[in-house]
């Protein structure tokens, strides 16, 4: 069996008001992979993430975290998860450095670990020259990077990123993905929801959600071949068309 963390989502259902956000979704995510979640608005991407985080309780079905193949308590795993929501709330009048310091205190990271982690993160995000700048004064791309940096401060093993590059310019989008690649290794599980199909192609495994279910999954190239489409845009349209 593997020595890694994995997440097993088994037939999960969740109703939000009158909307069946998750309608029996089953998925598996493993460390060492970059999992891409794609799907139209309302497909259940955010609800899925919130369920994985324990913020929402499934109406039926279950979410299980495993390590070395054995189930582990959610409370044990929770401190090892980093979550970046779609609308991130940073503190507009705190600087980059003040944010890092704040999250260090919140997560109770030791000074030595904090020092090396801070340096490493500033280097890979290239935010070093801007540590004094207040969050309100940051450009969209820099703001997203600061959000990611705060989430990464305590060296998470699981990263849940909800459309992290939405509304960011093409260059910053590329930098963000380079950053993800640099962070990914065999012990880390990355789950990223995205509306950009070129980003979906960069994942090691893609899961297409539609009306609260997983309708197509696989390694990008194999998935396109199996679905007999040339691109993810076509894949998207094929399933959206089938659902309409």
């Amino acid at each position: 069996m593997s020595d890694r963390i994995s997440i097993h989502v088994d037939d999960v259902r969740k109703r939000l008001g009158s909307n069946q956000a998750l309608a029996g979704v089953s998925l598996e995510f493993v460390a060492g992979k970059m999992h891409g979640i794609i799907g139209p608005e309302g497909a259940g991407k955010t609800t899925l993430m919130r369920t994985l985080l324990g913020l929402l309780k499934p109406d039926a079905g279950r979410v299980e975290y495993r390590e070395d193949g054995a189930p582990i308590e959610f409370d044990t795993i929770r401190p090892r998860i980093a979550y970046m929501p779609q609308q991130q709330s940073l503190y507009p009048d705190l600087s980059i450095d003040e944010h890092l310091e704040f999250f260090r205190a919140l997560y109770q990271i030791s000074p030595e670990e904090y020092r090396s982690r801070r340096e490493e993160l500033l280097e890979i995000t290239r935010l070093g020259p801007f540590v004094e700048r207040a969050a309100a004064q940051l450009s969209g791309g820099m703001y997203k990077k600061l959000g990611l940096m705060c989430a990464l401060l305590r060296s998470p093993e699981i990263m849940l990123l909800d459309e992290p590059t939405n509304g960011v310019d093409p260059i910053s989008r590329r930098e963000f993905w380079e950053l993800l690649y640099r962070l990914s290794d065999r012990r880390i599980l990355i789950l990223v929801a995205t509306a950009y199909m070129d980003e979906a192609e960069r994942c090691s495994e893609v899961h297409l959600l539609e009306s609260g279910r997983a309708v197509a999954e696989g390694e990008p190239r194999a998935l396109l071949a199996r679905e007999k489409v040339g691109s993810f845009d076509e894949l998207f349209l094929k399933h959206a068309g089938a659902a309409a």
């Binding site: 139209p40 608005e41 779609q86 609308q87 969209g140 939405n166 509304g167 509306a195």
Partner: peptide
């Protein structure tokens, strides 16, 4: 100024 940031492709 970035009127469509963060809305769905259909919107």
């Amino acid at each position: 100024d970035e009127p469509t940031a963060g809305v769905t492709p259909a919107a």
